[in-house]
């Protein structure tokens, strides 16, 4: 999704109304309860919240020129990797084996076997169409943000094909867009 993303893909940046800002905060708080105590710092009510609309129905939630969250159409908000790195426990985690790392970093979706092999790991609570942090065998920090296609349990039993869509990964266009100015 952000493979070739750049500033040129942003078609409009608008400060949102207070009511929309509240709504965005609320849905982020609902999706990531762990972030709730931080929301006053991350998205202060008094500061202008910018939503950048991009190609393919993608929205970026931007505060002080820093993209913090993104979503597609009305889908769930997901943190940027830079934000997730700071607060790694806000998302449920999957882990890919070492062999999958280079594919994930090239933008490939995450195949079930990469998660079910000895180096991989699944959180069985995760259902389909859920944002997850993608960790990697032997690494401390997340390398991607995923959106599950199947529940974790089915990923384990089906064990072939794509299990998780790769939404955002290290060194993609969004990663490189540290600030919007």
């Amino acid at each position: 999704m952000f493979k070739k993303f750049s500033f040129e893909d942003i078609s409009a940046q608008n400060q949102v109304k207070a009511s929309v800002q509240r709504k965005i905060r609320q849905s982020i708080a609902d999706e990531y309860p762990g972030l709730e105590p931080l929301l006053d710092d991350l998205l202060p009510k008094k500061s202008p919240l910018i939503v950048a609309k991009c190609q393919n129905h993608l929205n970026l939630v931007v505060m002080n020129n820093v993209p913090l969250f993104f979503n597609v159409r009305d889908g769930p908000y997901m943190p940027t990797l830079r934000l997730l790195h700071q607060y790694p426990d806000i998302m449920k985690k999957f882990q890919v084996d070492r062999g999958a790392i280079k594919f994930v970093l090239a933008g490939a979706n995450i195949m079930c076997p990469g998660l079910t092999s000895p180096g991989g790991a699944l959180n069985d609570e995760v259902l389909e169409e859920t944002p997850v942090a993608i960790m990697a065998e032997g690494k401390e920090h997340a390398l991607a943000i995923g959106f599950t296609k199947l529940p974790a349990k089915d990923i384990r039993t089906v064990n072939k094909g794509i299990g998780v869509d790769n939404m955002h990964y290290l060194n993609d266009g969004l990663w490189k867009m540290e600030r919007l100015e």
């Binding site: 309860p33 762990g34 709730e36 105590p37 931080l38 790195h85 700071q86 607060y87 790694p88 426990d89």
Partner: peptide, 11 residues
């Protein structure tokens, strides 16, 4: 009120 987590410093 939940506790405020401290940000992880990533190298």
């Amino acid at each position: 009120m939940a506790e405020k987590p401290q940000p992880v410093r990533v190298l």
